[in-house]
Design a protein around this nucleic acid. Structure first.
Length: 873
RNA sequence: GCGGGCGUGAUGGAAUGGUAGACAUACGGGACUUAAAAUCCCGAGGGUGUACACCCGUGCGGGUUCGAGUCCCGCCGCCCGCACCA
């Protein structure tokens, strides 16, 4: 036998070769046909910032493994990719670099698409969509108009963060210490008329349906649950002791009506109508202004003291005849929640207690913890919010919190104040309607026209899309659409008189709220083709970052419901399975001057005490903490460089190895080197095996040969296990299984070389082929090269996942550990499913067991069949 | 503050209540080589011991169990989310 000269596997040649072959054969293009089972795997599409980063590589590799695996199972796999292409960075680039947002965005898309292609993802690129393209956003405008028709759109005033220099609305996260992140100007609270999508219409449904999402992480469901923030309570009227202007009564919302006997004050929000009506008094005006100032500095809320100002007004205590409660304006009461007014029960609410201590208001405990003594129980600096029984509460005394709430609700329901039922049971949600208006250029225009004569009217369907004008300038602050000389001047669609276009564009979260549906028929003349959308959706497996756990996923869930109502599809939940992957992190490096350094500029050495120096200057470098890869800390590794140096398969393999996918993975040189070595090991294994195949006559595996039987069991077990791990997205465990198989096969090659038989060689061929097939979803290029080397003329990409011989998964004998008092002392090999008495006899006959027994009979022998024996002495 | 998660070798991490440390990385030793790289083989939680072997060991302290990394209670530490939501 003459061993071939094995060239090292060269990904720089092989990878582009297979990428081209897949392209040429349209391997990943999927048609909507119903002969095969559909499977929809989707990764969160990227913002086209210009470069992909390792986080994308990790995210898309996971989806790709699943897509390729499901394809091998014979499923019709939809695996599309597109671009979340509207957004502020394009406008910033326009301002800084004098490049048009459209040109900038499409150049970035082209660059990133090239990068994604170089990693060999099995995307159906014929379905590519960019949300900034009129062919996409015209349908979004149609959806907006349809939502308007079915009553899911609202136009109302709302408070916004207004940057007076940039003349734009800022999101909360763009306000830093009360100032605009870009201009540094003090942000104002302004009331603007905004478009809203009525998410809150579905609050209850969005909450309830979380229970049906059993393939979502509990963590995400919990975050959504908290975000929706349902609370059940009572709306309760308090009558003023005497009328003040038009105010006869104050309405509060409370979830603790059972503590009404402990009430000692009323607090209203600085934005409450009563507070506003009193703003002519200087001390109240000053207080309101101060509260607003703190309100914008989000961080300051943490430490903000509970402050208030007394209004001079009192209300009648609703259950203590003759008693009154003072009314304060308090900085901790939010106008946006409930009624903007509360009653304070200091003994059982921490905020109320802090407030009461400051203003010397009474603290009256009315809930007694179980086991506490009514005579001695006191509330000092910590409010008691736990369960217990009502006391000091007259007709509620003795009832538990739940029963007391019920009874007091009935009591107030039967009374009236100021012609209102005094108390009404009500459910409140933290979730509010979704304000989608943005005073920006690079977004989807809101398709409405404002006419002085006819009011606000939708743009007729026939006139869609409302296309963004391209001749805009960014040299003035404010919205370029608003500055455009002609664009906004149109005829009113109703009276044909002069009218103005809406110049606000939509929040970019709208764009990403329905793209998964558009992918099912990306060239349809309507937003979706309902029959096609319904057959693909819901997405079987959605994969992305946990940072979208709340907003994007909640908005998408809302959109699915809204699109259903408007007749565009017929399902409730868009994503059946959700997986949130961890970040890619890397060490950080700083030089003596405190400047961040790129890993490429640093040489690290040493083991226990690691030191680093600059690659060029040799200057000492400080090794910093491990952080998410980010440009600002320079701890990024460029996928292009990795692909150029190691190849895409190495990067893919490393991203899947070691760390559980939901956790962060640390990018290390050593790890990448290890992955790269493994690529070569597989290549060498296949080449070594090939020498043996060429020398041997065809045959069946010889199961009478112990080494053959053993290796075949390993092969079939691994195929079965890897399938299970991929299904469960436990890629790190799949990787470990594949390592074990490779180790096993490498050893087997040596034994076949030593004692070659046709039966052994046949088993080796079976093993090597299956190894390549199970590796294929993870390292598709290497797998194709090996597959071709093994003599296959058809591409592996069209191969099926290998069948498993179940008979090889069960052993006739089992190795069972024997414990004495729970500590392992011996192992026995017995027939599978051997009767307990046989197992017991065998176990007790072990030297180590006999020694521990010391001649005495065992107290007890626990036998778990085929698993373990525990002898209790 | 509230809610959730996590603490296992030098490192990333395995382990339906049933042999703790699979697999990988780093490390050490050996083979091959003029040499190195690559590759292959071997070793390895800590401790006692010539060996067979024994003791200790999954953040800390208790508990349940024949048996606990896993379940329960109480601490400590780290991470994440929400944050005056009445």
């Amino acid at each position: 036998m003459t061993a071939r000269v094995v060239e090292r596997y060269n990904p720089r040649v092989e990878e582009p070769r297979w990428q081209k072959a897949w392209d040429d054969t349209h391997a990943f293009e999927v048609k909507h046909d119903d002969t095969k089972d559909p499977y929809y795997v989707l990764e969160m599409f990227p913002y086209p910032s210009g470069r992909i980063h390792m986080g994308h590589v990790r995210n898309y590799t996971m989806g790709d493994v699943l897509a390729r695996y499901k394809r091998m199972l014979g499923m019709n796999v939809l695996h599309p990719m597109g671009w979340d292409a509207f957004g502020l960075p394009a406008e910033n680039a326009a301002m800084q670099n004098k490049v048009h947002p459209k040109a900038w965005t499409y150049a970035n898309i082209a660059a990133m698409k090239k990068q994604l292609k170089s990693i060999g993802f099995a995307f159906d690129w014929t379905r590519e969509i960019a949300t900034c393209d009129p062919s996409y956003y015209q349908h979004q405008q149609k959806l907006f108009l349809d939502f308007l028709k079915v009553g899911l759109v609202d136009r109302k005033k709302s408070k916004v963060n207004w940057d007076p220099v940039d003349m734009t609305v800022l999101a909360n996260e763009q306000v830093i210490d009360g100032r605009g992140w870009r201009s540094g100007a003090v942000v104002q609270q302004r009331e603007l008329t905004q478009w809203f999508l009525k998410v809150s219409d579905y609050a209850e449904d969005l909450l309830d349906a979380l229970d049906t999402l059993d393939r979502w992480p509990d963590k995400v469901r919990l975050m959504q649950r908290n975000w929706i923030g349902k609370s059940e309570g009572l709306r309760l009227f308090f009558e003023l002791t005497e009328r003040w202007q038009n105010f006869m009564a104050l309405e509060v919302f409370t979830t603790r009506p059972d503590t009404i006997f402990g009430a000692s004050f009323i607090a209203i929000s600085p934005d409450h109508p009563l507070a506003k009506a009193m703003a002519d008094r200087p001390e109240i005006a000053a207080f309101i202004e101060e509260a607003h100032r703190i309100g914008t500095a989000t961080e300051a809320i943490d430490k903000a003291e509970k402050l208030g100002v007394f209004t001079g007004i009192h209300v009648k205590h609703p259950v203590k005849p003759g008693a009154t409660l003072p009314v304060y304006i308090a900085n901790f009461v939010l106008m946006e929640y409930g009624t903007g007014a509360i009653f304070g029960c200091p003994a059982h609410d921490q905020r109320d207690l802090d407030f009461a201590r400051r203003y010397n208001l009474p603290v009256i405990p009315v809930v007694l913890p179980d086991g506490a003594d009514a005579d001695t129980f006191e509330v000092a600096s910590e409010a008691y919010t736990g369960p217990g029984r009502a006391y000091h509460s007259e007709f509620l005394d003795g009832l538990d919190v739940y029963a007391a709430k019920k009874k007091i609700a009935e009591y107030f329901a039967a009374r009236t104040v100021d012609n209102h039922q005094q108390g009404t049971v009500e459910v409140n949600y933290r979730l509010r309607d979704w304000g989608i208006s943005r005073q920006r250029y690079w977004g989807c225009p809101i398709p409405v026209v404002h006419c002085e004569a006819c009011g606000t009217n939708p743009v007729p369907d026939a006139e869609l899309p409302v296309v963004l004008p391209e001749d805009v300038t960014f040299d003035k602050p404010g919205n370029p659409l608003d500055h455009h000389p002609t664009w906004k001047h149109v005829k009113c669609p109703v009276c044909a008189g002069p009218a103005l276009r809406e110049t606000d564009t939509m929040d970019t979260f709208v764009d990403s709220s329905w793209y998964y549906a558009r992918f099912t028929d990306p060239t349809a003349a309507t937003p979706t083709t309902p029959a096609i959308a319904n057959s693909w959706l819901p997405v079987d497996q959605y994969i992305g970052g946990v940072e979208h756990a709340i907003l994007h996923l909640l908005y998408s869930r809302f959109f699915t419901r809204a699109m259903k109502k408007a007749g565009h599809l017929n399902l409730d939940e868009p994503f059946k399975g959700l997986f949130t992957q961890g970040m890619v992190v890397h060490e950080t490096y700083k030089d003596a001057a405190g400047e961040w350094l790129s890993p490429a500029d640093v040489i690290v050495s040493g083991m226990d005490i690691r030191t680093a120096k600059h690659a060029v200057t040799g200057a000492p470098v400080e090794i910093g903490s491990i952080e998410k890869m980010s440009k600002s800390k320079k701890n990024v590794v460029d996928p292009d460089e990795i692909v150029a140096t190691y190849g895409a398969d190495t990067a893919r393999w490393f991203m899947l190895s070691d760390s559980p996918p939901e956790r962060d993975v640390q990018w290390t040189e050593a790890g990448v080197d290890g992955a790269s070595r493994f690529v070569q090991r597989i290549w060498k294994l296949v080449n070594d095996a090939l020498d043996l195949f060429e020398a041997a006559a065809p045959a069946e595996p010889d199961m009478s040969d112990a080494a053959t039987a053993e290796v075949r069991k390993l092969v079939h077990r691994t195929v079965a296990n890897v399938a299970g791990e991929i299904e469960g997205l436990r890629f790190n465990r799949a990787v470990a299984q594949i390592y074990e198989l490779t180790n096993g096969l490498t050893k087997f090659v040596a034994s076949v070389v030593e004692h070659p038989t046709p039966g052994r060689t046949a088993a080796l061929r079976e093993g090597v082929e299956r190894l390549i097939l199970v590796v294929a979803p993870m390292m598709p290029h290497l797998a194709e090269s090996c597959w071709a080397l093994l003599g296959n003329t058809a591409m592996l990409v069209d191969s099926r996942w290998p069948a498993v011989d179940d008979a090889l998964l069960v052993d006739s004998t089992v190795l069972i550990p024997v414990q004495v008092n729970g500590k392992k002392r011996a192992e026995i090999t017995v027939a599978k499913d051997a009767p307990n008495d046989v197992v017991e006899r065998e176990a007790l006959s072990q030297d180590a067991v006999a020694r521990m027994l010391d001649g005495k009979p065992p107290k007890k022998v626990v036998i778990v069949p085929n698993r373990i024996v525990n002898v209790v002495v």
